[in-house]
């Protein structure tokens, strides 16, 4: 298990998925993609997915747990589903448009 904090980039071991940590609780987290732990470095060769792929990850979307105690940003999409401690994360609703730039 890797120590993660805001700004940490994580890479899927099974697909193209890349996420960045926006906020996480202090607890140890088991962040997986496609069933395998995500890593802080991109693997030269991808492993095969463990279990069902699910819907995969979408670039640009923010992913949260149900209680919104943690938040990740998908910076590259892929086929694997992102889960934390065995529970799949959900897409957070789109950002409101700015009222002025």
């Amino acid at each position: 298990m890797v120590q993660i904090k805001a700004g940490t980039k994580l890479f899927s071991a099974v697909c193209d998925t890349q996420i960045m940590v926006l906020r996480v609780p202090a607890d140890d987290l088991d962040v997986t993609c496609g069933g395998l732990p995500m890593q802080t470095e991109e693997a030269a060769e991808k492993s095969s997915m463990s279990g069902d792929a699910g819907e995969g990850s979408l670039v640009g979307k923010r992913y949260v747990d149900e209680a919104e105690t943690m938040e990740f940003l998908c910076t590259r999409g892929g086929e694997g589903n992102i889960s934390v401690n065995g529970v799949a994360l959900e897409i957070k609703q789109a950002k409101r448009l700015p009222s002025s730039d």
Partner: peptide, 18 residues
């Protein structure tokens, strides 16, 4: 840096490595 959207400030911890 343009923090035009309310949620943009949520990204500052990640931008600055916490």
């Amino acid at each position: 840096i343009n923090l035009a959207r309310d949620e943009d400030t949520d990204l500052l911890p990640a931008l600055t490595n916490g």
